[in-house]
Each structure stands twice: as C-alpha cells, then as structure tokens.
C-alpha cells in the first residue's frame, strides 16, 4: 500500500492517533478535574509546619508504601468514614515550578493507608517513637527507622521534645534523644491528615462489595459479639502492645492495671472513648473510641478481652452497662 511506503504519512498518522487518544483519556479529563473541583467548605490549608512536614514525607518517599485514598469498597472502610472524592484532593497544588503537585494517593499499601491517620493515631509521643524506631511500638513492623530525624543531646534545652525509647532499642546510648524540627513537622503533617466530613445534606457514596453476612453468624448468640482480640490488635496494641505490657515510660501496661481490673467501669469506658491524661509519667492517650467510632458492642469486647487476658482475671462486663455509659458520654458531648 502506498501509505505504508511513505514514512512521513505513516508516522504522522500514528502520531495523530496517539495525540487524539491522549487528549481524550488524559489531558481533557485532567483539566476538567482540575478546573471543576473545589476543596470542601471545612478544608483548612496546611500550616507552615505541616507543609514542611509534607515536603519531608515526599522527600523520603513515604508514598512508596502508604496510600492516601479511601476507595468506595467495603474493605477500605477501616481507613475512613466515606469513600474519597475529587474535592478531597482539590486543595493540593504544585509546591513550586520544579516539583509536581503531590496528591500522594499511592499505588502500594505495604503499610496502612494514611488518609485519616491524624484521627486514628493522634498521639505525638507514639508518632515520634514510631518514627525513631517503628519496632519499638509495633514489633513486627517492616517500616524503616528514621533515626536521622532525631538529635542526641547530653542535656535537654528549653522547648526540646524528648523521645523516651525502650532501652533495648538504644544500643547503650546514654544521651537524650530529641526530636528535630523536621521530625516535629512530619508528625504535625501526619496529625493534620483527617478525612473531612461532607457538608450537611450531602450524602457520601456507598461502599461497594459489602461483606455478605451469613445466616449462621447472625443466628448464633455467641457469634454476635465482635472479636475482642482482633479489635484490641487494630485499636490498642500499637501502644499497649499485644502482650498488654505497654512500653516503659511511654504507654502504661494493662496487665495488672487497677483501672482494667477494677470495678469502676465508667472510668474505664470514659478512658477508651475520650482519652486520658492523668499520669505525667506516660504519654497522653487520645480519644480512641470516639475517633474510631467504636460501637458499645465493640467497646465491651475490648474491655472483656483486656480483663481476661495476660493473666488478668476480672469478671466480664455486659453490653448494657457499657451502652448506658456511652449514651451518657454522647449526650453530654452533644450538649457542649
């Protein structure tokens, strides 16, 4: 065919086909999304410190293992309350002429998704220790240690944030471990990662591929209670550890704890739902229950797991007791 023997016509045809397709599948949709989406009304731009933290996040390639997207499928429900929408990313702009805007949605989930990590894990002490040595808080983690974001000092100065590290991870280091500005910025960025709620009246998309609940699990009474051990692993173990012994100087043990074993269930539920900051020798506990939207059944399962594990031997509590306390907490917090 003549056409195939003329290199100009041939290459021009291939080039044009590719350009046309490129326009329709990449350039036009990208421009349309860029122009027609606005951040949600409650969106706050990153502060200077958070922005520096984001730069550090980008610089260290954290996106290689951590996504920031909640897909509209049931399995992603643990990473956010609703599926992500275009408006969630509309506030992300190019930082400068040299670098691209980083939505940091990612393609690999070797580690957990971070869309909502500011809400799920807001503890400063936990985050700093976790950056210094992930295995100090999560023994089986494969995350790199970011030791170079910390300084070693003989004596603490004013405004220094010290990180208490369990001795087996110090390798004989006697000096104090102090978080650098970059480490603090990075944690500030992580703490800023919270999924925004939709404006009132807007209904979030549904999560697809719901897990089918088989008749068996709904009919049997014993199976209707959630699994306390699983919930403990997901919500509590990163600080209090799987063995319930906590970390010295950072997170208190639950094994043999008077609150866990005691009779003041109201205090216990309050701590889970609202957090705790009564003991200066330990880090502040965040409102784990409220942040993670734990139901009365789930809180009960966690409490009963804690009261009966690691040698703890206290009586189980009932869902009714716990539900009453949680209802009261919600009532008082709504009135504020």
């Amino acid at each position: 065919m003549e056409f195939f023997n003329d290199h100009k016509k041939l290459f021009l045809a291939a080039f044009s086909l590719f350009i046309v397709l490129t326009l329709f599948v990449a350039i036009f949709p990208a421009i349309e999304n860029q122009e027609n989406n606005q951040p949600l009304p409650n969106y706050k731009p990153l502060t200077a410190s958070e922005l520096r933290g984001k730069n550090s996040f980008v610089s260290n390639g954290c996106v290689a293992c951590h996504t920031q997207q909640v897909r509209n499928v049931e399995m992603d429900k643990i990473w956010g309350e609703r599926p992500g929408i275009a408006a969630d990313y509309a506030g992300v702009e190019r930082p400068d002429f040299w670098r691209n805007s980083a939505t940091l949605m990612g393609t690999e989930r070797t580690g957990p998704d971070l869309t909502n990590v500011g809400k799920r894990q807001p503890s400063m002490a936990w985050n700093l220790l976790h950056l210094y040595q992930p295995r100090a808080v999560v023994p089986t983690s494969v995350m790199p240690s970011y030791k170079w974001l910390f300084e070693l000092k003989e004596k603490l100065e004013e405004d220094d944030v010290e990180v208490i590290v369990p001795s087996e991870f110090l390798q004989g280091e006697q000096r104090k471990i102090v978080a650098s500005q970059e480490a603090l910025d990075l944690v500030a960025y992580l703490q800023s990662l919270k999924q925004l709620s939709l404006p009132t009246g807007e209904v979030a998309d549904d999560f697809l591929y719901k897990k089918e609940i088989s008749e068996e699990s709904t009919s049997g009474l014993s199976l209707s209670m959630p699994d306390g051990e699983l919930l403990y692993t997901s919500n509590c173990a990163s600080c209090h550890q799987a063995n319930g012994e906590g970390l010295k100087g950072a997170f208190p043990p639950l094994k043999g704890s008077s609150i866990v074993l005691g009779d003041d269930i109201e205090l216990f539920v309050n701590i889970i739902m609202l957090g705790y900051d009564a003991r200066p020798e330990y880090a502040v506990m965040s409102a784990v229950g409220t942040n993670n939207d734990l139901s009365p059944e789930e809180v009960t399962a966690i409490i009963n797991h804690e009261r009966t594990s690691w040698g703890n031997d206290a009586s189980k509590v009932t869902v009714e007791e716990v539900k009453q306390i949680i209802d009261f907490i919600q009532l008082t917090s709504n009135n504020e």
Binding site: A26, P29, A30, I31, N33, Q34, N37, A86, Y89, A90, G91, V92, E93, R94, F97, W98, N100, S101, A102, T103, M105
Partner: peptide
C-alpha cells in the same frame, strides 16, 4: 511544569 493540581495529577 504548570498544571496538574488536585486529581489532575492522578489522572495524568
């Protein structure tokens, strides 16, 4: 170097 804000970046 002058475009791809927001989701545009991901599409590209």
């Amino acid at each position: 170097p002058t475009w791809q804000n927001g989701l545009g970046e991901t599409i590209v």
